[in-house]
Each structure stands twice: as C-alpha cells, then as structure tokens.
C-alpha cells in the first residue's frame, strides 16, 4: 500500500522527470473511479463483442433442403427395427460389409420405404418436397452434413462404435430424438460446421467428466455414461462431445488408454 502511494505521488512529475519517464506516466494502472469506469467502458463492449457478436458474425446459418424427423423414423411402428437405440440408428446409418460407414444414407436407403412418389407415407409438406423434388426426380438430397470432417481427416466409425463401444449420441448428441433438424451453421472462415469445430465456442468445455454418484440419473443421460478400467479400478465417466476436434478426440483416446491412436496418421490422411 505504501509503495503504491509512493508511486502515485511520483506520478505528477512524469514527463519532466527522466527516471519517471513516459513509461510510468502512461502505463501505471489507474486507481481513480473514473479510471475504472473507463476500463469498464472498454471491457464490457469487448466482452459483448467477443461472446455475442463474434459468434453471430463468424457463423452463417443455412437451412436443410427440408425438415427430417428422426423421431418419426425411429418409430418401430413404421418398420424401422432395432432392440436398442443404437440399433435403431443403424437401421439407416449402418456399416457396410467392408466396415465402412454409410453416414447419411443415400436415396437407395430412403426409397426402400419411400419407393413410390405418388403415395406418401405421411402427409407433411417436407415429405412432399422429398417425394416430388428428389424421389420423383431420382436425385440425391443435398443434405448439409453437421459432422462432415475436413478433407484431410480420416475417421473410422466402426472402430469407435463397434470396437470402442461408443454410442451414437456420445459424439452426435441427441440427434436421434429430434423432431426437426437443427439449423446448419457454417464457419465463414473455415467453411466447416459449427458441430465440428465450434459448438462450444469457448473451447474449454470438459467433454469427459467423472460421473459422480447421483449426478446423471435421468434416462437421457445414461447413454453418455461409460465405465472405464483405470489403474484405480473401474470409473464411470460422462462422455458427451461438444465438438469433434482433434483435441477432443485425443482427450477421449487418452482416457480410454488408446494413446497409440493419437499418432498423426490415425486421423490424418
């Protein structure tokens, strides 16, 4: 406290006194209320710009060609079969014989049911668009893919789902229970979806948290719980990826003792 007051005493001399100098006069912290107000006047807009304006500017929003309801399509009543939620997903998003993943299914999968443009199954506008503009025309639907990775990235679904035992939702979230497709947000700078790089714009969300007793008991949350063997015994983690970036992959690999899969070529191609 004493030092500080000394410093403030010397301040008026700044500019004429060589030892005080320009440095001191300009760069010493402000202590007056007015000074603080000015700091706040700079700080607050900056925070708003950084947290609110920047994300809005950074991402453009695009609509899918038409809406698609996962809820409707995971309904066993319409013939989509599967014991578990995962199996329901994989009715359409399946693995091929060579182990590759079909991703967003093509028209050939859709038309297994929607085979007649004249007789829609439901009566929604979206379905009409689908049947008239795509099925009838024999065109593939130009879906905007939320999880489309950059050209240089290799990703094996089968390694994660079948061998690693991850559920779809742990990376993709609750997509399978949605009535509507979310707006596709594209990073104007990188051209990639917000789901890949920036769902959590701050970049410091903890994707993998130790699951404490009683914390995650709802049915919804169960799908994100995983028990992992560690040196201390079995531990349960709550895993829900907020984005699909290199660091997120590496974090999960490390927790799962798959450090060898953090080698460059495993994900780069």
């Amino acid at each position: 406290m004493e030092n500080q007051s000394n410093a403030s005493e010397k301040r008026p001399q700044g500019g004429s006194n060589e030892s005080g100098g320009l440095l001191n006069s300009t760069f010493l912290p402000p202590f007056s209320l007015k000074g603080w107000l000015f700091v706040l006047a700079g700080l607050v807009p900056a925070l708003i710009v950084g947290w609110v304006v920047f994300p809005m500017v950074l991402y453009s929003s695009q609509q899918q060609p038409f809406n698609f309801s996962h809820v409707v399509h995971t309904n066993p009543d319409i013939g989509i079969e599967g014991e578990t939620e995962q199996e329901l997903c994989m009715y359409c998003h399946y693995f091929r014989e060579d182990g590759t993943f079909v991703g967003i299914p093509g028209m050939d999968t859709c038309t297994m049911c929607h085979d007649d443009p004249e007789f829609p199954y439901g009566q929604t506008e979206d379905e009409k668009i689908f049947l008239e503009q795509y099925v009838a025309e024999g065109k593939e639907v130009p879906w905007l893919v939320y999880s489309d990775q950059p050209e240089c990235v290799y990703f094996s679904h089968i390694a994660h789902v079948k061998m690693g035992g991850l559920t779809c939702g742990q990376c993709h979230g609750d997509h399978g229970r949605s009535e509507t497709l979310p707006v596709y947000k594209e990073n104007r700078l990188t051209g990639y979806s917000i789901d890949i790089w920036g769902r959590n714009i701050a970049g410091y969300s903890k994707n993998i948290k130790p699951a404490e007793a009683g914390m995650y008991e709802t049915e919804d949350d169960e799908q994100y719980l995983r028990t992992i063997e560690t040196e201390q015994g079995e531990e349960t983690y709550h895993i829900k990826m907020s984005s699909m970036k290199m660091d997120d992959c590496a974090e999960c690999h490390t927790i799962h003792h798959q450090e060898q899969n953090n080698a460059c070529f495993v994900c780069h191609k």
């Binding site: 060579d98 290799y154 094996s156 061998m163 495993v266």
Partner: peptide, 11 residues
C-alpha cells in the same frame, strides 16, 4: 492399414 482394420472390425 485403416481399410484392413475396418474390414477386420467388421468381421
């Protein structure tokens, strides 16, 4: 290698 692994996983 990745291709072969995927094939193996499928089997």
């Amino acid at each position: 290698l990745m291709r072969a692994k995927e094939q193996a996983y499928a089997e």
